[in-house]
């Protein structure tokens, strides 16, 4: 599978997906740390990809996403944004709504499948 196919597959099969530097438990960048904390506080399961361990994804995703930096949050196949947007949305309550609804729709999909 090409890197681009891998990225598309990840984005398609994970309703809530965070591309970050490090992991939620051991983030390696302040921006990724903040983003994963905001996402964890929504109390829904989410997938993540550590781009420091996936240099191909790190190189390819910015072009595909039209977004040059990390972290990147993808929900239901769409780019939501990076750390600033995630934190703004967390503060306004929008993130919780978005993530809860995405988690619900994913459960529904799995039940049908």
């Amino acid at each position: 599978m090409s890197t681009l196919e891998t990225i598309k597959e990840q984005i398609e099969s994970n309703a809530i997906l965070l591309y970050m530097k490090g992991t939620p438990r051991f983030p390696q960048c302040g921006f990724s740390s903040r983003a994963s904390e905001a996402l964890m506080s929504c109390n829904e399961r989410f997938a993540f990809v550590n781009i420091l361990e996936n240099p191909d994804i790190r190189a390819e995703l910015p072009k595909y996403a039209n977004w040059p930096t990390f972290p990147q949050l993808w929900v239901n196949g769409e780019l939501v944004g990076g750390c600033d947007i995630i934190c703004d949305m967390a503060a306004s309550g929008e993130l919780q709504t978005l993530v809860s609804e995405a988690a619900k729709s994913e459960e529904g999909d799995n039940a049908e499948g």
């Binding site: 530097k21 490090g22 983030p27 390696q28 960048c29 302040g30 921006f31 990724s32 740390s33 903040r34 420091l52 930096t69 750390c83 600033d84 934190c87």
Partner: peptide, 29 residues
């Protein structure tokens, strides 16, 4: 490498009274 952005319209900026979140500290990445 990193560009933290806080982007507002004039009306939003007036509402915030110029208060902007601080950037996080580096964690080695």
């Amino acid at each position: 490498h990193a560009l933290s952005m806080h982007l507002y319209t004039q009306a939003e900026w007036a509402e915030k009274s110029g208060l902007v979140p601080a950037s996080p500290k580096c964690m080695g990445g």
